[in-house]
Amino acid sequence: MGPDPLAASGITSDKIKKVIKRTLLEMPALTTVSVVELATGNTLAYCSRRRGFNPVTTAGHQVELLRQQQQAMAALALRGERLEDILIPFRKQLQLFRLAKNGQWFVFLAVRAEDTPLALARELLKSIVA
């Protein structure tokens, strides 16, 4: 057996399953949830109710956004600070990115703004990713 392709990102397939399952269980009205590896931009798993959702294009843009933010943080030399999450509230949709503790993968969540308060979605994602 070769090396586990997931080993580099520090996430196991069990954990991926758990993240997707728990998110679906606790936020049944979600639009999209995906688990993405930061280094490669690969979507490890996703579930979306959007017709025509393209995990490859979406993940590409998301990874770029997080890298930009990490570059900003590096340039500012913020000591003792780690990127935890990014929230982008739109009129009809909330988008959340939560980075894993090791910084190698993240969970993306999109929900309808009218169904889910921002604070709730954020807390939920925090407990799921931890």
């Binding site: 913020l78 600070e81 990127l83 999450d85 990014i86 982008i88 509230p89 739109f90 009129r91």
Partner: peptide, 16 residues
């Protein structure tokens, strides 16, 4: 994402 505008972006760090 038609009909949507970015209004704000919130970034959470450890203490900021």
């Amino acid at each position: 994402l038609s009909g949507e505008n970015i209004e704000d972006i919130l970034i959470t760090l450890t203490n900021q």
